[in-house]
């Protein structure tokens, strides 16, 4: 049996509320448990504000946990000293949504990709340069890009640079936070193919955060659906898309516009996510759910295993 590479155990993150809700706090991430195995892609989907990016930052140890624990290769991320933290950071990397703002505009491409190497003990300049060339080649950029600045590149090329930088230290896990949302479809296809190829070659695990379900389906082995800070459904990709159990997952899948005009948008969700200040009792989805009963309004449900590899948190699903 494989051991998980990354294991989230009842992870929670609270932020203090500002303004009218002063003194209160709201839970951006609430009791999330999730395992990622080496070489697999876990898709994390949900609407804006559901906590998916916050979860990504927690994995990267960029934010402190309020509760729960994150284990990377069996070791807790909390209470690490500086040296351990740095060693860990080379194992977990991130690619952000907008390469325009994640690349330093004053650095040349060579410097951008070289920086993590320089900071992590690659003393030999010649070797560093060699490695940068190799990395750029891996993401499909030629040597002529070494001396260019980010503004001289197209969006897709910039995202390739960001990916080259992320894989420079041979990480085991990459958090991909909406890596193709800012790109056109034809370029998106290039980047998705590149990511798949790198995953095969380098045995990378991905935590793939996106609101685009079609893209998630294309890349992921497993998909977790988040709503209001919680994972409400988790299953293998095909199982989730073919047999969604949570009412929210169902409407989410039905809301994707289909390229076939004969398949119109059928159901749609009324209303919006509850505000973080007034978190509803019971199941957080009950205010928009057409099946809500008294149990949903008062108690809600924990995430439970319904069948092999399919977890769902809904009172209507009986084990």
């Amino acid at each position: 049996m494989f051991k998980p590479l990354l294991s989230l155990q009842r992870v929670g993150k609270e932020f203090p509320a500002r303004g009218s809700g002063k003194g209160l706090s709201y839970k951006a991430v609430n009791e999330v448990s999730l395992d990622i195995y080496p070489g697999e892609t876990v898709g994390l989907v949900g609407e804006s504000g559901c906590g998916k990016s916050t979860l990504g930052y927690l994995v990267l140890n960029l934010l402190d946990l309020t509760s729960g624990e994150i284990l990377f290769e069996g070791q807790s991320l909390a209470n690490l000293n500086k040296a351990q933290q740095r060693a860990l950071k080379s194992q977990i990397q991130i690619v952000f949504q907008d390469p325009q703002s994640s690349l330093n505009p004053r650095f040349k491409i060579e410097q951008i990709v070289e920086e993590p190497l320089r900071l992590n003990g690659w003393r030999d300049k010649q070797k560093r340069k060699e490695r940068v060339r190799q990395l750029l080649d891996k993401v499909g950029l030629g040597e002529e890009y070494l001396g260019r600045f980010p503004h001289e590149l197209s969006g897709g090329q910039r995202q390739r640079v960001a990916i080259a930088r992320a894989i420079s230290l041979n990480p085991k896990l990459i958090v991909l936070d909406e890596p193709t949302s800012a790109l056109d479809v034809s370029v998106q296809a290039q980047i998705l193919n590149l990511l798949k190829e790198l995953q095969r070659d380098l045995n990378l695990a991905f935590l793939f955060i996106s609101h685009n379900l079609a893209v998630v389906r294309h890349l992921s082995n497993k998909v977790a659906v988040m709503y209001y800070g919680r994972i409400i459904e988790l299953a293998d990709t095909n199982e989730l898309f073919n047999n969604p159990l949570h009412p929210y997952t169902k409407v989410l899948l039905q809301s994707i516009p289909n390229i076939n005009p004969e398949k119109p948008l059928l159901v749609e969700l009324e209303g919006e996510m509850p505000t973080p200040h007034k978190s509803p009792l019971g199941c957080s989805f009950h205010s928009r759910c057409s099946y809500a009963n008294d149990l949903c309004r008062e108690a809600g449900s924990e995430l439970q295993l319904i069948k092999e590899g399919h977890w769902v948190s809904c009172t209507r699903q009986k084990v």
């Binding site: 479809v185 034809s186 296809a189 193919n193 079609a214 294309h218 898309f241 899948l253 390229i259």
Partner: peptide, 19 residues
């Protein structure tokens, strides 16, 4: 080409065709 580059939510192919 544009249509082929589109990931389809109904089924997942192995490779997308980019332009």
């Amino acid at each position: 080409a544009l249509l082929k580059a589109l990931p389809n939510p109904d089924h997942s192919e192995t490779e997308l065709q980019s332009i």
